[in-house]
Design a protein around this nucleic acid. Structure first.
Length: 590
DNA sequence: GACTTTATATAT
DNA sequence: GGTGATATATAAAGTC
């Protein structure tokens, strides 16, 4: 696997690097480096002058901005309307390099350093309070809990990272990943700044329809009160709490309903008059507590929902979010996403992203053909492999997740016959994981290594003095890890595709012309009110908020960038990534 | 009382 | 006797 490198890779061609960092006093230094690493210029300014200086350098040379943590620096720049085209996020890059199998172990860095600081969920991350980070920059408190942000520390870390990248097995591939990850950091900051256009009245209407009118504080909405009364009546227990699983479970047992838990899945199908109202109550309770009026008050201001996105927040490279459950917005509330007057929502999601990514990674011609230009699951049906689309879907998901029982267990062996290359890739990843090994995505993000205790437990379980229970437990944890690594390679590569898609799209949209002053969507802020911009991202789906006149062009850009992402990751592959795309004023409940 | 764990819901 | 991945959020219950 590891090929000897006989020559040092030449420095990559490309734009100059501008490293941003704190200098003496309250100054901020901007150090310009040629691609080879030599310093060609250095300037400094106060915080207030930074946006002007950054805007000038951006216009002059479109550098790659080297930022200790784009999440911390972006708000300062965005407030002043500066949107860097490219960046290198030292914190995110550090995390990838630390684990990547493409990087020789000696170059991955020793023990944890200040650069391993995880994303800090910023305290006032709600409302339009983008000034908080600027304040932190002013008073210098961010250094205490964030990554280092001094100019010398940033340059030293950059230099260390460049050395690790140059020593990597496939530097060009790794650079793609690092550029995509860094672009993601800029996109996340911009998504938060722009916000999701949110129709409070529509949200309130959905809540009122489902729950009854907004109740006074401390009381339940009328339809929940009614459902609760029906449940208590049917259980013949006038006081039982429906919100406490243990108490509810005991009450169900007293009424002769034999269920192991109070979950929806166990309840449905039981024949008892309490079941139907209880299930209704649970649905309503979920809506009220997760996305009710309190959520609306807390998270939506001036027609925008501004969640905090956390790029790379999931081990596989997927994004996480913090605040308001942005990635779990129930489909029921989708109609509350509504474009501003005169604007449109251009929504696009990739059909079967993960199976397509698997087909491309493995070069499985049969699987690529099954999805060519159409629904991949239907393609599997048409090829005569399974009788129904539903079975095709269950089988493919079983292959990605490691399902061995039930319906997926029955279908997966047939897929293994039909798509040997694709299945060999995920099966291989699972086998590596079961052995305690590390697997990597297409561009080189690697799964975390197992704990030493895990390896020891596995070893001892198969030694002479182990009990059957010990062996069984070891086998189970090994299989669990196999399912994790099996899924890691596909989910992680899909995340890389999605980042590449958005990174390209972001640059395309930024080049759109500005609309006239009276056509702006002011709530999106000074930067994003003037032209089509990204407004939402969810793993395989984007929503662009666009002036009506730019909606068609935005849709075309979304499609072209999906094609471009496919070619970037899988050059020469016939794989395609068809989109479901729509231009609407209001997001549709799917 | 502050903190952690469990149960249950949601998304892909 | 367990048998499908990755997550976040809430509230109740458990722990110190």
């Amino acid at each position: 696997m590891a090929r000897a490198r006989l020559v040092t890779a030449p420095p990559p061609p490309g734009p100059p690097l501008c490293v941003l960092g704190r200098a003496e006093g309250a100054r901020i230094a901007v150090r310009t480096l040629a691609p080879g690493g030599t310093i060609t210029a250095e300037q400094s300014c106060g915080t207030a002058e930074l946006p002007a200086l950054a805007a000038r350098l951006e216009a002059e040379s479109a550098p790659r901005w080297v930022l200790s943590d784009a999440a911390a620096w972006s708000p300062v720049l965005l407030r002043a309307g500066v949107t860097p085209a490219r960046c290198h996020d030292l914190r995110l890059v550090h995390r990838i390099l630390r684990h990547s199998e493409l990087v020789p172990a000696a170059e991955r860095g020793g023990g944890p350093t200040a650069w391993d600081t995880p994303h800090e969920p910023e305290e006032p991350a709600r409302g339009q309070d983008l000034g908080a980070t600027l304040f932190e920059l002013d008073c210098g408190s961010s250094a205490s809990h964030g990554v280092p942000d001094g100019i010398e520390e940033a340059c030293a870390e950059l230099s260390r990272q460049q050395q690790a990248i140059a020593a990597a097995e496939d530097p060009a591939r790794l650079r793609l990943l690092l550029a995509a990850e860094s672009a993601g950091a800029l996109i996340a900051a911009e998504l938060q700044a722009a916000g999701i256009p949110w129709d409070v009245a529509e949200h309130d209407r959905i809540l009122t329809e489902a729950l009854g009118p907004r109740p006074s504080p401390g009381t339940l909405p009328s339809r929940m009160v009614e459902a609760a009364a029906e449940v208590r009546e049917a259980l013949d227990d006038a006081t039982v709490s429906l919100d406490s699983p243990p108490k509810l479970l005991r009450a169900l047992h007293r009424a002769g309903i034999d269920v192991p838990s109070t979950s929806q899945w166990e309840l449905q199908g039981k024949d008892h008059p309490a079941i139907a109202p209880l299930l209704r109550y649970k649905k309503m309770s979920r809506l009220l507590t997760a996305n009710g009026w309190a959520w609306l008050d807390e998270w939506v201001h001036e027609g925008r929902y501004r969640p905090v996105y956390v790029p790379g927040g999931v081990v596989t490279g997927r994004w996480a979010s913090s605040g308001g459950g942005a990635l779990q917005i129930p489909r029921q509330l989708r109609p509350a996403l509504r474009a501003d007057p005169g604007w449109r929502l251009v929504s696009a999601d990739v059909s079967q992203l993960e199976p397509r990514v698997l087909a491309a990674m493995s070069g499985d011609g049969e699987m690529i053909a099954a999805g060519a230009g159409k629904d991949l699951y239907s393609g599997i049906v048409e090829a005569g492999i399974v009788p129904t689309r539903q079975e095709a879907k269950i089988g493919v998901l079983g292959a990605l997740y490691g399902g061995t029982t039930g319906d997926s267990g029955r279908v997966v062996p047939r897929l293994r016959q039909t798509f040997p290359d694709a299945m060999a890739l995920v099966d291989g990843a699972a086998a590596t994981g079961e052995r305690g090994g590390t697997v990597s995505t297409w561009l080189g993000r690697s799964s975390p290594a197992v704990e030493e205790s895990w390896t020891l437990a596995q070893r001892s379980a198969f030694g002479p003095e182990s009990t059957p229970a010990e062996q069984e437990r070891a086998r189970r944890t090994a299989r669990e890890r196999g399912r994790f690594t099996r899924n890691f390679v596909v989910q992680g590569t899909a995340a890389e595709w999605a980042l590449s898609w958005m990174a390209a799209l972001r640059l395309r949209l930024a080049a759109f012309p500005e609309v006239a002053a009276d056509e702006r969507a002011d709530a999106s802020g000074p930067v994003f009110s003037r032209r089509a911009h990204l407004a939402f991202f969810l793993h395989d789906e984007v929503i662009v908020h666009a002036p009506a006149a730019q909606a068609e062009a935005a849709a075309a850009a979304i499609r072209e960038c999906a094609d471009a992402a496919g070619r970037l990751l899988f050059p020469g592959s016939p794989i395609d990534f068809p989109l479901d795309l729509s231009i609407t004023e209001r997001s549709a409940e799917k």
